[in-house]
Amino acid sequence: MSSFLEISNLCAQIKAEGQEKHILRGVTLNIPAGEVHVIMGPNGSGKTTLSYILAGRDAYEVTSGHVTFRGQDLLAMKPENRAASGLFLAFQNPIELPGVNNAHFLRMAVNAVRRQRGQEELDAVAFLKQARKVLETLSMAPDVLKRAVNVGFSGGEKKRNEVLQMTLLQPSLAILDETDSGLDVDAMRVVAEGVNRLRSPKFSALVITHHQKLLDYLVPDRVHVMTKGQIILSGGPELAREIDQKGYAPFVKGA
């Protein structure tokens, strides 16, 4: 399965009127099954937009190009169907759902995905058992299940909650949008380990980050540099270290 995720010449603009138009200007990227790819790039280069478009967020208009995910036309699918076929997006700013119990939300999500995948739903007991196990590995307090989704969570707790969801939903493609931003070293390691634990020939990840530090724990197969809506350079893990030392400027100039 070489064509696990194929993004070809993807161009997109924001829908809202009066806004800066083109955000993606021909992104081409292949992620084979089992690989972890990293996208780095200056702010405003279109990284988050790319992750939103892959996950099916409205408000963007794809003007050309296409994306296939496991042989399917990804852009034609509803967000929830993308989730069911294995795509998971860890949000840069996880959303608060006031009054919605976290355990309830997690179980609904897990069962929605299981249902769409033709698997049996988990009952409350089986689910809690599984959730508690994951909580332990993420060094999260069990009371996080009783709280409302992301409400009153610290920045670190929110990010860990994303990793908790990711682990429970067992995606085949995880997109992490700056999940490491604003985290201390310990929390960053938890996030990286969360991804590492899922690594297998059937799991791929697209990690958007600014930090070489994360890549000490999460060694990528490929590193891509994105500026102004295009991927201008790709390389191995050493590329990230180079950027860490020299910044983006030399690469951007060369583009």
Partner: peptide, 21 residues
């Protein structure tokens, strides 16, 4: 979008958010 990205349909998402409310 957050709920749908986690696999819930739009109606399930609204039901969930309303019940939380």
């Amino acid at each position: 979008f957050y709920c749908r990205q986690r696999g819930l349909s739009e109606e399930e998402a609204i039901g969930l958010i309303v019940n939380g409310f």
